[in-house]
Amino acid sequence: MTAPTTPHVDIHRAGDRLKTRIAWLDSKHSFSFGQHYDPDNTHHGMLMVNNDDIVSPGQGFETHPHRDMEIVTWVLRGSLVHQDSIGHSGVIYPGLAQRMTAGSGILHSEKNDAWRLPGSPHAEHAEPVRFVQMWVLPDESGITPGYEQLEIDDELMRGGLVPVASGMRKHKGQSAIGIANSNAALYVARMRAGDTVQLPEAPYLHLFVAQGEVALEGAGILSEGDAVRFTATGGQRLSAAQPAEVLVWEMHARLGG
């Protein structure tokens, strides 16, 4: 495909996101999702879903199917239980990266009920879980389903942008969990007050402020829930006047071309 040549920075504010609210779920969607469809807002680069979800204790998503999607889940608060049809079961919590390859087909559930697992040390609690779930298409359809999770809290504590999930060759051998997309990588920065990080340069970037507040060079203040879509630009600096956590996708291709 031909890389984009016109630099563009598109800021999307938290309050403008599409929303799904039911008794046990408060979900905010950066892109079209479920019954919310906007033909002008279906993806950016390779990223199709960026859902910011809060799930009540003892509740969650019952077993449901996925196919041909790389699904990365990042927990910000609380814990989330994953169980799937190929035998994986795990508790996801802040600082633990998780990826599910849906491939030729998989069933899974996600619930805020870690205390119900056999032998679990977790006591029943009343804390909602908040997590961001992100979907990118794989390079090939019909691949073998899979699952991976990895504790990367130590890397995050060192500061800077940490590769969390990647299919790019440059991250081979690093701590990032693998995804089956050779043109995409997710970074996370857990920033302390006074910290500064520099964004990568790529044809497509997606920045999501998961927690706190940051200042983006050339654009000003970004608050929790704000997102920025970069096209044909990058290298800007982010600075934090207060503790913050940001998620950044670097992408070298886009859907449909």
Rank of each mutant, 00 (worst) to 15 (best):
E245Q: 13
V164P: 07
V136H: 02
Q211H: 11
S182G: 08
G256P: 00
D16S: 15
S223M: 14
Y37P: 00
A189S: 14
A3V: 13
M100Q: 04
I221M: 05
G173H: 06
D38L: 02
Q149H: 14
P145H: 04
I106F: 03
E250A: 12
D26E: 11
A244I: 06
L18E: 10
R158L: 13
Y37T: 06
A180I: 10
G95Y: 07
R13W: 00
V228W: 08
I86C: 03
A23L: 09
H252V: 03
H252E: 12
S223K: 15
G45M: 07
G234D: 05
E148R: 04
R190C: 13
L161P: 05
D195C: 11
W249A: 01
Q59M: 12
P7S: 08
W249I: 08
Y187T: 07
L156V: 05
I177V: 15
G103Q: 15
P200N: 06
A180G: 02
P4V: 12
R67E: 10
H8G: 00
S109N: 08
N181F: 10
T2V: 14
A240E: 08
H44Y: 06
E217T: 10
I71F: 04
Q98Y: 06
D10V: 00
L80Q: 06
V214T: 04
H252R: 15
G34Q: 09
A241L: 03
A102R: 09
A253P: 12
V91T: 07
Q59K: 09
R99N: 11
I221G: 00
G235A: 08
A189H: 04
P57C: 07
T231R: 13
I92Y: 05
L216R: 02
M157L: 14
R158K: 15
G257L: 14
R116S: 15
N50V: 09
N183E: 14
V9N: 03
G235V: 07
G87A: 03
K172A: 15
T101M: 10
S30R: 02
A180Y: 13
A180M: 13
G220R: 09
I106C: 07
S56Q: 14
E201H: 09
R192I: 00
A176S: 13
E155Y: 11
E140D: 08
T63F: 07
V81C: 02
D10R: 07
E245G: 03
P118E: 12
H64P: 07
G87C: 09
L222D: 01
G220Y: 08
L117T: 01
F230C: 12
H252K: 09
M191V: 08
I92W: 03
E245W: 04
R237M: 10
S239C: 13
V129I: 00
Q98P: 05
T231K: 13
A210L: 03
V81F: 02
S182N: 10
R67V: 13
D38I: 00
A202E: 06
H12D: 07
H122I: 00
T144M: 11
I22P: 00
L76N: 02
H12Q: 14
L107G: 07
V162M: 04
P4T: 08
S32M: 01
H88R: 12
D10E: 13
V164R: 02
H12S: 11
H44C: 09
L107P: 00
A189M: 10
V72W: 03
